[in-house]
Simulated scan of single mutants.
Amino acid sequence: MYQSVFRPALFDGQVVVVTGGGSGIGRCVVHELAFLGATVALVGRNLDKLGAVQSELLQAGVPAARISTHGADIRDEASVKALVTEVLSQHGRIDALVNNAGGQYIAPLASIGAKGWQAVLDTNLTGGFLMARECFVQHMAAHGGSIVNMVADMWGSMPGMGHSGAARAGMVSFTETAAVEWAPHGVRVNAIAPGYIASSGMDHYPPEAAAMLREMPATVPAGRFGNEAEVSASIVFLLSPAASFISGTVLRVDGARPQVRLGMGPVGASADVQQRAAVRAFDGFPLYQSPKVFQP
C-alpha cells in the first residue's frame, strides 16, 4: 500500500484527472490519490502504460469503479474537449486536475528546429492550457475545483533545454493568470516545480548524458536527488483543503538547488547529514524503481 503522510479518505468522493498518468511522477501521483480515496482518471497517449498502472491499482485493492483510463493527445484541442466530456460522462464531476504530462530533450538552442521547438511548447504549455481550460469550462466554472500545473526548475532559465524553459516559464504565467481569472468561480490554480528528481523520465535521456546525471546531486545543497513520492506529496498538499488559501503560486521541490551560484564550491550535504529527520528522503511509493542510469 502507498505510504502517504496524508489522512486516509482525504479525497473520498472526488474525481481527479491526471495527465501523463502512465509513468514517472504521474504514476506515483495516481497511486497516492487513489490510496487517499480519489477516483482517478488516467490520461495519456499510450493506453498500454495506462492499463499497466490500472492493474497496479487493482492489485493494491482500489475498486475498479474508481479507476478509468483515457487515451488522448493533450496537444489537440478537439481531443481534449472530447476527453473532458468523456470523464464527466463516466464520473459525473471533475474536482481536480493534475497537469503532469510533459517532456523535452537535451539540445542547444542553435540546433533546435521549428518543429522540435513547437513540439515541446505544445506538450508542456499548450496541452496544459487546453486541459485546464476545458476542465474549467465544462465543469469547474460552475462547481469550483483545484488545478496543479507541472513546471520545472527553470529559475535562471534552462541552458541545454531552452525550449522547455520557455514553455515552463509560460506555464508559470498561465498559472498566475488563471488563478486570478478563475478565483471568482472557486477554482484554485497552482504549480509544482520539481528540481532534480530521480524519475523514470531520466531513462529517456541519451547514454552520453549518464555522467552528467550522476554528477547532478553534487550541485544540490540537499546533496541528493528528490524522488517521485516527494513531488507527489507536494501536489497532494496543493489539492488538499489545507491549501485552500493558496493560489497562483509555484511550490518548488528542489532541495534549494536554484540558490547555488558559480564559485561557491561543494554544496551538497554529506550522506550522514542526509539521514537527519528533517531532510531524510521520503520513500512513500513502494513500487518506485530508481532510473536505470543509477542502477548497478
Results as ranks from 00 to 15, higher is better:
105 Y>K: 10
117 W>Q: 02
215 E>W: 04
73 D>F: 03
173 S>E: 11
146 S>G: 12
126 T>Y: 04
133 R>H: 13
61 G>F: 03
235 I>N: 02
160 G>Q: 14
253 V>S: 03
72 A>S: 14
145 G>L: 09
67 I>M: 08
57 L>F: 07
153 D>A: 10
293 V>E: 06
109 L>Q: 07
179 A>E: 08
54 Q>V: 01
249 T>C: 13
244 S>C: 10
118 Q>K: 11
218 A>V: 10
163 H>W: 04
249 T>I: 09
119 A>N: 08
201 G>L: 05
157 S>I: 11
169 A>L: 12
220 V>K: 03
284 G>W: 02
84 V>F: 05
295 Q>C: 11
41 A>C: 15
199 S>E: 00
291 P>H: 11
130 L>K: 01
208 E>M: 10
165 G>E: 05
142 A>M: 07
94 I>F: 08
167 A>M: 01
207 P>T: 11
209 A>F: 13
114 A>N: 10
18 V>P: 01
51 G>S: 11
184 P>F: 01
235 I>L: 02
189 V>A: 12
286 P>V: 00
120 V>D: 07
7 R>D: 12
190 N>Q: 07
66 R>D: 14
262 L>C: 06
155 W>H: 13
108 P>K: 08
96 A>Q: 11
156 G>L: 13
236 V>N: 01
260 V>W: 09
94 I>Q: 08
289 Q>P: 09
163 H>V: 02
85 T>E: 14
148 V>T: 01
241 P>I: 00
26 G>K: 06
211 A>Q: 12
3 Q>H: 15
266 P>C: 07
232 S>A: 15
109 L>E: 06
11 F>H: 03
22 G>N: 04
27 R>I: 03
43 V>T: 06
15 V>I: 07
201 G>I: 00
74 I>E: 03
67 I>G: 08
157 S>V: 15
91 H>F: 13
32 E>V: 10
118 Q>P: 01
89 S>H: 15
134 E>T: 04
16 V>Q: 06
293 V>S: 01
252 R>G: 06
122 D>A: 11
15 V>G: 04
254 D>G: 08
197 I>Q: 08
107 A>S: 14
82 A>T: 12
260 V>C: 11
230 E>C: 05
290 S>F: 02
221 P>Q: 08
116 G>I: 00
148 V>L: 04
153 D>L: 06
27 R>M: 06
163 H>Q: 14
177 T>D: 09
216 M>T: 15
225 F>D: 12
281 A>L: 15
196 Y>C: 02
185 H>D: 13
52 A>F: 03
281 A>K: 11
9 A>V: 06
30 V>R: 01
277 A>I: 11
283 D>V: 05
119 A>Q: 14
157 S>M: 15
172 V>Y: 05
180 V>F: 09
188 R>K: 14
113 G>R: 02
272 D>A: 13
31 H>R: 15
254 D>P: 00
284 G>A: 07
117 W>G: 05
272 D>Q: 13
283 D>F: 08
